[in-house]
Design a protein around this nucleic acid. Structure first.
Length: 170
DNA sequence: ACTCCGATTGTT
DNA sequence: ACAATCGGAGTA
């Protein structure tokens, strides 16, 4: 039997800055809601939400308790588990390019809402530095508020990035 | 209570 | 171009 481990390198992210950021799910006067409450908790945990009532998307909470800052994971360069991911994706490629596809391929659902990403079954590990000229910066995908904020960061030339290099350049 | 809309994806 | 599908926000 083959190893069922799935892994990869994150190559595309977007930052959301809580109440200061009109595009954030935490940018309401109401404060925490059932959906966004994970963002108000400790950093290093998963904020999973349903997108358009259809897909799961995952953020990593980055702000301290009470500071609802988070980073949306939008692209993953797969390392292990191609067959498992392909199965979860219903045989469709790309596997992990785009926040909804990525969660489908990794099996991320609301069962992992608030999950501590230091622990199995889903672990976030430190990567490595890359030169500044390898990091692309653009506006965020699909947002209508703060549409000109340069808060999307991606690895130039990576095939797992959800938009072509240069898309939405500032 | 009711409407509109979105941090998406896949099909027509 | 458009459907799927649902929580949140705004309106009443």
């Amino acid at each position: 039997m083959g190893d069922k481990r799935v892994s990869g390198v994150i190559v595309e992210t977007e930052a959301y800055d809580g109440p200061n950021d009109p595009a954030s799910h935490a940018a309401t006067v109401a404060g925490p809601t059932r959906r966004n409450r994970a963002m108000f908790g400790p950093p290093g945990r998963a904020y999973v939400y349903r997108s358009y009532g259809v897909h799961w998307c995952m953020n990593v909470v980055t702000g301290p308790i009470g500071r609802p800052q988070a980073v949306l994971v939008r692209g993953l360069d797969p390392l292990e588990g191609d067959a498992v991911m392909l199965g979860r994706r219903g045989g469709k490629r790309p596997l992990t390019s785009g926040p909804g596809r990525l969660c489908a391929a990794l099996g991320i659902t609301d069962a992992l809402y608030g999950h501590d990403l230091r622990e199995p079954p889903l672990v976030l590990r430190a990567g490595w530095s890359v030169d500044d000229d390898v990091v692309g910066v653009s506006v965020r995908v699909g947002v209508t508020k703060a549409a000109d904020w340069p808060c999307r960061f991606y690895v130039r030339g990576s095939t797992a990035v959800s938009r072509p290099d240069g898309w939405g350049a500032i």
